[in-house]
Computed example of a mutant assay.
Amino acid sequence: MSPVPDCGEESYRGSGRLAGKATVVTGGDSGIGRAVAIAFAREGADVLISYLDEHEDARDTARLVEEAGRRAVLVPGDLSEADHCRAVVGKAVEAFGRIDVLVSNAAFQMTRDALEDIPDDEWDYTFKTNIYAMFHLCKAALPHMPEGGSIIGSTSVNSDAPPPKLLAYNCTKAAIANFAGSLAQLVGPRGIRVNSVAPGPIWTPLIPSTMPPDDVEQFGSGTPLGRPGQPAELAPVYVMLAADEASYVSGARIAVTGGQPIL
């Protein structure tokens, strides 16, 4: 990609806010997930990096986690499959003994000009990857999450201001926000917090791989800040929601949109 997304490789500095925590980050090979994995490690957490099949990117993220002095566990596979979601959780429990923080971030999108252009299997795959996976991951992880645990979902500004050509993706992101709000109430009595982060236009590999070139050229220019965000600009929000200092933050949805309000 040109320019290469900034995932905080050179800029993020930790301060021990997640010391000793066992964490799972899906979609951790690139983009927002990579930035979160780097930040978590530099804050003192071990990280299981779930990813599809981008092995070189995932190994590079793992290298950065290990250079921060933390343990990295790589688990490739398709999160649209319920059994793989359960396997991811199983690998984390096997490696760490528990799960303190689960970040459900992996996503799929595809631009389509008309509803009739969306193949049935693409609609199903978008939902299975984006929201079904969060359900299966959370269901499997909760028995292994101690009091003080944190679940974070990646939603989107698109759920509130849906661009028509990303119809399937928009619907899943609205579902993630609602799922997080509902689950926060279900698991609050267990001392587990659930929140979501709503990014605006963030410069990740998902953008040029799923959007027409003209849309990529203008990507992010319509925000009040006039540019797309970088993955590194989201990582501190995930750190905050994962940290013990946010012990009374649950059921929240935090916008990182370059100035486009979500009220």
Rank of each mutant, 00 (worst) to 15 (best):
166 L>H: 10
133 A>R: 03
177 A>F: 07
105 N>A: 06
259 G>F: 14
97 G>E: 11
1 M>I: 14
162 P>M: 06
188 G>D: 00
2 S>G: 12
112 R>N: 09
83 D>V: 13
33 G>L: 00
208 P>Q: 13
146 P>E: 15
98 R>W: 07
216 V>E: 07
101 V>F: 01
159 S>A: 15
2 S>E: 15
71 R>I: 11
27 G>V: 00
123 W>E: 11
26 T>K: 04
141 A>M: 07
119 P>C: 03
257 T>M: 14
140 A>R: 00
32 I>T: 12
102 L>F: 09
219 F>P: 03
148 G>F: 05
193 R>E: 05
26 T>P: 05
130 N>G: 08
102 L>I: 10
1 M>N: 13
205 P>H: 00
179 F>A: 05
197 V>A: 01
147 E>Y: 09
71 R>Q: 13
254 I>N: 01
3 P>N: 11
93 V>H: 04
91 K>S: 07
142 L>G: 11
111 T>Q: 15
128 K>Y: 11
53 D>E: 14
242 A>V: 06
3 P>M: 11
145 M>K: 02
207 I>G: 01
3 P>C: 08
178 N>F: 02
70 R>P: 08
145 M>L: 09
169 Y>R: 06
4 V>E: 13
198 A>W: 03
95 A>H: 05
146 P>C: 14
112 R>E: 01
182 S>H: 12
63 R>F: 04
195 N>Q: 09
224 P>A: 09
91 K>E: 15
230 Q>V: 05
187 V>T: 12
31 G>P: 02
114 A>I: 06
170 N>V: 10
20 G>T: 12
136 H>Q: 04
74 L>P: 05
208 P>E: 12
138 C>S: 15
157 V>D: 05
25 V>A: 02
141 A>E: 08
2 S>T: 15
168 A>E: 02
252 A>S: 13
7 C>G: 11
161 A>P: 05
72 A>Q: 11
212 P>I: 12
131 I>Q: 07
145 M>I: 07
170 N>H: 04
233 E>Q: 13
54 E>P: 08
130 N>V: 08
25 V>P: 06
57 D>Y: 03
226 G>H: 02
21 K>T: 04
60 D>S: 13
170 N>Y: 04
260 Q>G: 11
50 S>L: 03
73 V>K: 10
258 G>V: 07
239 V>D: 09
194 V>Q: 03
56 E>Q: 14
129 T>P: 07
135 F>N: 04
5 P>Y: 03
83 D>W: 03
213 P>A: 03
217 E>I: 00
173 K>V: 01
178 N>M: 03
242 A>T: 10
226 G>P: 00
93 V>S: 06
43 E>M: 00
128 K>F: 01
200 G>S: 13
201 P>Q: 10
169 Y>Q: 05
240 M>D: 09
27 G>N: 08
51 Y>E: 08
57 D>N: 12
31 G>N: 03
114 A>W: 13
178 N>Y: 01
48 L>R: 05
40 F>G: 00
182 S>N: 12
182 S>G: 12
143 P>M: 03
239 V>G: 02
14 G>E: 00
175 A>H: 02
190 R>W: 02
207 I>L: 04
26 T>H: 08
187 V>L: 12
65 V>G: 06
254 I>Y: 09
15 S>L: 05
167 L>A: 13
144 H>N: 00
